[in-house]
């Protein structure tokens, strides 16, 4: 309890440091997520539409997933150097697999009869995708975004190891100085952010899901 109180004391004494860390952490996470969504969701759409390349791509992305995020960070060091850029690239790559895999799976899971009916009623390929297939796949895609967000928010902590800032800075300093108080100043907000993201995106996921049968 003492360390908690001391951690709180630290926050009160250094509000600007904490606020700065929050903004950097959010900026890193959200930028990486936005870029990843722009790149990897369309990639998932393409994967779902080809029966030879698609599954290979998805399997490859799945395999790439086993590389630990810290390893990705250090692997990128020689290419991008220190700072925010390699961190962004690492987080971007980290967000990829759940986005590609879920987009592909969600689109493939849409009932073929429903899709054929969309065409049968006179929708062209774009209308059938935009009005029927994509909305029906959306809950699964949002689940992928949720997984990606939590991974990115948590892993952004590691970015501090290569000097990118964020809440991870408190953790690295805390480790170096054996200061539990600093560790907590870094760890608690990151945990809270991850929980918040989980709650918000779960709510979004439910909101975009079509209602299921209700006992009447």
């Amino acid at each position: 309890m003492d360390s908690l109180r001391h951690a709180w004391q630290y926050v009160q004494d250094n509000p600007d440091k904490v606020e700065q860390a929050l903004w950097v952490h959010l900026r890193l996470s959200l930028t990486a997520l936005a870029m990843a969504m722009v790149f990897f969701i369309p990639l998932g759409v393409l994967a779902s539409r080809t029966n030879r390349v698609g599954p290979t791509l998805v399997a490859g992305v799945g395999a790439a997933r086993v590389v630990p995020s810290l390893a990705v960070l250090f692997l990128l060091l020689p290419v991008f150097g220190l700072g925010e850029r390699p961190a962004l690239v690492a987080l971007f790559l980290l967000a990829g697999p759940p986005l590609v895999i879920n987009t592909d799976a969600g689109l493939r899971a849409v009932d073929r009869a429903v899709l054929e009916n969309a065409r049968g009623l006179g929708m062209n390929a774009i209308q059938a995708f935009a009005r029927v297939q994509a909305p029906l796949a959306l809950p699964v895609v949002v689940a992928g975004i949720r997984t990606a967000t939590i991974e990115v928010v948590a892993s952004a902590t590691l970015a501090a190891f290569i000097g990118a800032g964020g809440f991870g800075t408190f953790i690295t300093s805390g480790l170096a100085l054996r200061d539990v108080r600093l560790l907590l100043v870094g760890a608690i907000p990151v945990t809270a952010l991850a929980f918040l993201a989980e709650a918000l995106l779960s709510a979004l996921e439910r909101w975009v899901s079509p209602p299921v049968a209700r006992p009447s």
Binding site: D111, A113, V114, E116, N117, A118, G120, L121, R131, V132, P135, L136, P210
Partner: peptide, 11 residues
């Protein structure tokens, strides 16, 4: 056009 499994759009 009407098919067996209704093909209604669930969303």
């Amino acid at each position: 056009y009407v098919i067996q499994q209704t093909g209604l759009f669930p969303h």
